[in-house]
Design a protein around this nucleic acid. Structure first.
Lengths: 363, 363
DNA sequence: TTGAAAGCGGTACCAG
DNA sequence: CTGGTACCGCTTTCAA
């Protein structure tokens, strides 16, 4: 709960003096006002109405092109002109307060720096949602627990939320109670009450391990990045390897040449004959170190990456990898849009993370 | 004199449909309502007040821990309990409408996929702003011109905006008129009326070219990625090379092996003896192609990257590069915070993009 | 210590 | 065709 009490003195004390409001002294043609203290307040529709000599209602009709009401062309023009002159911009909060709902879609700001693929997915999603006329808000939950984070999010009254799995059933409930039409979770497992976009990293580990086993390796080293924040991906990938029945050997590794050299020596001198290196970048690091240590890839040690980056194709030997398929942002955006329109829809569960082994020369 | 008549509270307006609002029929002691069709509407502070048997004012006091008012402990407890029971979450829009200001900081959603460095910067910035208790909103302007985008942003009444340079002085003005306390621009040149965080990619090109010239190359090939969206970076980098007085030869290149092979052959058979390859990834692609084409690096062609990725150190020869220094997100977040507190501050101009050549073996 | 009520800026009814 | 006005949910005076 982010209840920071407003320490600030009310900037707008209820001055009982009638019209302390500015903008009263506008003489149409008068342009040279020397001592102009400048309007310190932002223009409202009332200001526009006053300047155009109409009511606020009319201003609203004109500016929103309300179809059900007919406004004469001259009036329309006067209103528009006044709005332009004042630099009037409607107040979204006021509008949605009145409307009873927003067009906000909340996206999770991943606590940890996500991979480039995931970032790209989020970016595309964001773009697609914008195109569908949604206001995309990224809200950093900054270390709040699932339910507290949900409460913080709910304050914005988003029409939809794409939350990480950690939100839990309770968080989901909080959001739904506060009017969120669609709660989708992104993560390895479904959450009760929410739609699930299953992204299970175990799939990636499994694809890698299956390929390696088909090459005759039953004992597989699995690189576990020491870099903080990556365990969220690394752990399940390890599990996925295990799930194939292979013997998985965790291999902690920092993204530095020195540590890679150490690991390379260890591997050269014994250990699993195949390594699933977490992703292409760690794979490249390890492969280089292996080669520098005089080990043959894949002869002595087979190395497999993940993510299918271009760099894998440029290495020698060419790097075998796992291609990870994320759904297109547009696709998910459309799904969100549909779910918002049908809030009562049965919670759907959809697997959106595909993994395919790509055999090249390093395995 | 057109005095707007003070709206007098009409005690009984002829509203035909009296109370369509639910919850009006509470008979004090009546608590056991059997057929509860569940409240379909989201709970408001009024609901909490009713359940706790106090006024809305009291609810507000309790929930916000208002210091200036003393509320008895039993009452506080009743209110909190009621809020919990209803799953009450305050309505941010209503609150900021009343308060007259938001805590929203608007970040640009880059139209084009930005580089990993820039993404990392934005992520960190976002995180830091959240920590400073700002609501970070990413708003995709989806192909609106500077001023239109500004208008769209202004609807949210953000307290600060970090806009791309494209917003222009007019866009800046729109935002300021609608109450934005601080407008910062991220880009190559200052914008009138806004604070400028100068990120001039020419610096990168210049650093590369200076290094290459110190190696005796006065004619420098400059890779121009064909991938859409990268020209925004590539063009100024090219300019930067030119600015050193070197003869710059644009070298269009797609991020594919085939096109790289083509370019490599051309370079092998003549042309500039040095290439600034846009960044480390294009450099790697090109270097591989060069080697496959039988050209020696740096003997026949010197290759320089940018971004100082780890992969550069893993290549053979090791890749010379330009390290690009972006400011830390925390730093900028604090700057924003300060500027918001001092809206009248002189527009400041700050250079935030550093570039240093790192000589390794490829040049 | 608590309650009544006035708005914040817009929208959409209803009457003229 | 246009104006008056009652809300939306919340905060914050002022009075009791």
């Amino acid at each position: 709960m982010v209840q920071i009490p407003n320490q600030q003195p009310d900037p707008r004390p209820p001055s009982s003096d009638a019209s302390s409001r500015s903008g009263e002294s506008f003489t149409s043609g008068d342009s040279a006002e020397p001592a102009e203290p400048v309007a310190p307040s932002v223009p409202t529709s009332a200001d526009v109405a006053r300047l155009a000599g109409v009511s606020r209602a009319t201003v609203s009709y004109v500016l929103n092109n309300t179809g059900a009401v007919r406004i004469s062309e001259p009036t329309r023009h006067r209103v528009r002109e006044a709005a332009r002159e004042l630099g009037y911009v409607p107040h979204a909060a006021a509008r949605s307060l009145r409307a009873g709902h927003t067009r906000i879609v909340l996206l999770p700001t991943p606590e940890m720096p996500a991979g480039p693929l995931h970032s790209a997915f989020l970016n595309e999603l964001q773009w697609a949602l914008s195109r569908l006329d949604h206001t995309v808000v990224q809200y950093g939950s900054v270390g709040l627990t699932g339910e507290d984070a949900a409460r913080a999010w709910a304050e914005l009254r988003p029409v939809a939320v794409l939350a990480p799995t950690g939100i839990g059933p309770d968080g989901t409930a909080v959001l739904r109670r506060s009017g969120t039409k669609a709660v989708l979770t992104l993560g390895p497992e479904p959450v009760e009450g929410a739609h699930a976009l299953l992204m299970d990293q175990r799939t990636v580990g499994r694809a890698a391990a299956e390929h390696l086993r088909s090459r005759g390796h039953d004992r597989i080293g699995v690189v576990m990045p020491r870099e903080h924040g990556l365990d969220a991906y690394a752990e399940p990938r390890l599990e996925g390897v295990r799930a194939t029945g292979a013997e998985a050997v965790p291999l902690p590794l920092s993204y530095e040449e020195e540590d890679a050299a150490r690991l390379a020596r260890e591997l050269r001198d014994g250990g699993p004959g195949a390594v699933f290196a977490y992703n292409d970048e760690y794979a490249m690091l390890l492969m280089r170190a292996l080669q520098d240590a005089g080990a043959d890839v894949p002869g002595d040690v087979a190395v497999m990456g993940a993510d299918d980056l271009m760099l894998g194709r440029l290495l020698r030997p060419r790097l075998s990898t796992v291609r990870v398929d994320l759904p297109s942002g547009r696709e998910i955006a459309e799904l969100v849009d549909r779910l918002v329109r049908d809030p009562a829809a049965e919670p759907l569960v959809r697997d959106v993370l595909g993994a395919t082994a790509i055999a090249r020369e390093s395995t």
